[in-house]
């Protein structure tokens, strides 16, 4: 009887641990939005062994540069990051990303603020690889004023700042649909089922059937062939959304590949360590308990 109970309690203890771990991953679907999903072909960087597809990162950068960056900044990102290991423009030949000609070229396309050391005036100059991507607006007020009151969020860590990460970015960009009948969408707003929000006050239908999702100020930003890819890939909306989502995933966590590789090594070591320690433990405790 007691043995069964002890076993049961042991199992309960382990179950409690498992439950704690499961609980600890916050399971709050943000405000009743639709659950974000990956593109059909999946993301190459997902999973413990996933890595970034460099071609996709380069295409993603192009979408970011030509579309997103018209309103959004990514100020935590430096130009040199583009040329570092696992980055979109990493080149074996240029271990130091500051020397990478593509990175230099990209940087020089941007103007960054500086101070003229002669006169003390504020000026702008072409960026160098060590500079950060410039701010889009001088401050949040200017950003709001130029965008109908909504501040376009900085995209540097957007995939870490939203539930679902890159899947969210992809789903949002491809998820615009016409608002359901009975949902009042104000001028300058756009309905998207993947956007977090609460639509109860704008809904005139059955109060128990408020549509999921929310409204945002960003109009659907992508349409087919909006950019021309250098590698000849057809620039469909889905392709561009997947590419830019991958780019932003990389931008938010540029060391992800190194992290996972390190993790595999660490786990292998720890498992071997556990093996020998278990053997030592068995020998040592033999006949002791």
């Amino acid at each position: 009887m007691s043995a069964i109970m002890t076993k049961g309690l042991k199992a309960l203890g382990l179950a409690a641990i498992a439950a704690t771990l499961a609980l600890s991953a916050p399971a709050f679907a943000a405000g009743g939005a639709k659950h974000p999903h990956a593109p059909k072909e999946g993301f190459s960087f997902e999973g413990p062994f996933g890595t970034f597809d460099q071609g996709q990162l380069q295409r993603g950068y192009k979408v970011f540069r030509e579309v997103c960056s018209n309103c959004h900044a990514a100020t935590l990102l430096s130009f040199r990051n583009l040329g570092q290991k696992d980055g979109p423009f990493y080149d074996e030949k240029y271990k130091n990303p500051n020397d990478n000609p593509i990175v230099k070229q990209i940087a020089s396309e941007f103007e960054v603020p500086d101070i003229d050391t002669e006169t003390g005036d504020t000026i702008t100059r072409p960026a160098t690889p060590s500079d950060h991507f410039p701010k889009k607006f001088a401050n949040s007020y200017a950003a709001a004023a130029s965008n109908g009151g909504a501040i376009p969020p900085d995209l540097s860590v957007i995939t870490k700042a939203r539930h679902g990460g890159a899947r969210y970015v992809y789903s949002l960009l491809t998820g615009y649909v016409a608002p359901p009948k009975g949902l009042e969408v104000k001028e300058g707003q756009h309905y998207n089922p993947f956007m977090a929000g609460s639509l109860a006050t704008q809904w005139s239908g059955d109060p128990h059937k408020v549509p999921v999702g929310g409204v945002l100020a960003m109009a659907p930003p992508l349409k087919d062939d909006l950019v021309t890819y250098d590698d000849g890939t057809k620039a469909t909306t889905h392709q561009m959304a997947a590419d830019v989502a991958a780019f932003l995933e990389w931008a938010g966590d540029p060391h992800a590949t190194l992290r996972k590789k390190t993790g595999v090594g660490v786990l292998i070591y720890l498992l071997l360590f556990a093996g020998v320690t278990y053997a030592a433990y068995r020998k040592l405790w033999h006949g002791k308990h």
């Binding site: 070591y269 720890l270 071997l272 360590f273 020998v276 320690t277 053997a279 030592a280 020998k283 040592l284």
Partner: peptide
């Protein structure tokens, strides 16, 4: 027996 103790110790030092 000694080998396994040494291996476990070495793994700890390595870690």
């Amino acid at each position: 027996r000694d080998f396994i103790y040494i291996a476990a110790g070495a793994a700890a030092v390595g870690a």
